[in-house]
Structures are given as structure tokens and as C-alpha cells.
């Protein structure tokens, strides 16, 4: 344990991960829509910080630009324009909450047990990977070229889906 925290990176990781989790919990458990959105921003920022820790500054910047800069701002605009600031009743009974919470806690405990039980045996090897933009580009268009192309098709399909879901049909009303 002490070994683990003696490395500053590990200490930072725990702190940032904890903050990210708190923010994520706020998104799930909060009541006011505006608070949810702000918590979401915190969660995004936390993930960006984790990327920095992993020595991937480009991904960190991309995370901030896209998720905080674009998606979150879009959500905030949407909230302001539609005026959806009313408090939403959660409508989940206490009993259900308790059951699900128990399940989640047990699952988390099992996972931690599994990871911690094996942590010592996993060799920690420096990745030695080039995290430069060039390398990233070559990985994207090389090894994961197919995934990249498929993802672009996925975005296209998502776009169509978004239109279908949100557009009001003329003859529908």
C-alpha cells in the first residue's frame, strides 16, 4: 500500500479518480437539471486530467475541447433555450434504491477484490509507446483503420437516428 502511494503519479491518480467519481455520482443522483450539467462538466474534466497523467496530452486536450467545449456547452444551450430547469422527481422507490445500491456495492467490492488480489503479480512495464500526434494518427489509420471507418459509419447512422427521433413529422400532429 505504502509503496503504491509513494509514487506521486499514483497519489494523483487516486485523487483525480475520486473527484471524477464524485462528479459522476452527482450526475446520477442530483435533482436540478442545471446541477447535473455542471457535474457532468466536472466528470469530463476529471477524465481529461487522467489522460494527462497517462502522458497523453493530446487526448486530454481533445477531451476538453470536445466534451467540455462542445457537448457540455450544447447541453447548456439546450437547457437554457427550452427552459427545462424544473426539478425532476426521481420516482424510484426507496426499496429499489437500497437493493440496487447493495448490488452495486457488492459488485464494486468483488471487482476491487479481484483487481487488488492480482495487482502485485502484474508486471508494470513502461509502455514505451510513442504518444505523439504522428503515432496516434498512424495507429488510427493503421491498426484501427477499420474501426475508424466503421466509427464514421456509426456517426452517420447516429446522425440519421437523431434526426428521426427528434424531427416532428408533418402528418404526425
Amino acid at each position: 500500500m505504502i509503496d503504491f502511494f509513494s509514487q506521486p503519479t499514483n497519489l494523483w491518480f487516486v485523487v483525480i479518480a475520486f473527484l471524477t467519481l464524485i462528479a459522476s455520482l452527482g450526475v446520477v443522483a442530483g435533482e436540478k437539471v442545471m446541477h447535473l450539467a455542471l457535474n457532468l462538466g466536472g466528470s469530463f474534466a476529471g477524465v481529461a486530467a487522467l489522460f494527462v497523467l497517462l502522458q497523453s496530452p493530446f487526448l486530454a486536450i481533445a477531451q476538453v475541447l470536445i466534451y467540455v467545449g462542445a457537448i457540455l456547452v450544447m447541453i447548456l444551450f439546450g437547457l437554457m433555450l427550452t427552459g427545462a430547469h424544473a426539478t425532476e422527481p426521481t420516482g424510484v422507490e426507496t426499496g429499489k434504491k437500497v437493493t440496487v445500491a447493495t448490488a452495486v456495492i457488492v459488485l464494486t467490492a468483488l471487482t476491487i477484490w479481484g483487481v487488488y488480489g492480482s495487482a502485485g503479480r502484474w508486471p508494470v512495464v513502461p509502455s514505451g509507446l510513442d504518444t505523439s500526434l504522428t503515432a496516434l494518427g498512424q495507429a488510427l489509420y493503421g491498426h484501427w483503420g477499420v474501426a475508424f471507418e466503421a466509427a464514421s459509419t456509426l456517426l452517420l447512422a447516429a446522425l440519421v437516428g437523431a434526426i428521426v427521433v427528434s424531427r416532428r413529422e408533418d402528418d404526425e400532429a
Binding site: 474501426a147 466509427a151 456509426l154 447512422a157 447516429a158 440519421v160 437516428g161 427521433v165 404526425e172
Partner: peptide
């Protein structure tokens, strides 16, 4: 033959499926 490709493939199947299931808007 790769987890990432596999995952994207699964999403590419799933997202259109969600939309298709709800396609009868009326």
C-alpha cells in the same frame, strides 16, 4: 480479430437498431 473493431461493430449494429425499433412514430 480485434477488440476495438469488435466493439465498434457492435455499436454500429446497436445504434440503428434502437432507431429502427422506434420507427413507427405514431
Amino acid at each position: 480479430a480485434d477488440l476495438i473493431t469488435l466493439f465498434i461493430g457492435m455499436e454500429l449494429l446497436s445504434l440503428p437498431s434502437y432507431v429502427l425499433a422506434g420507427l413507427h412514430r405514431q
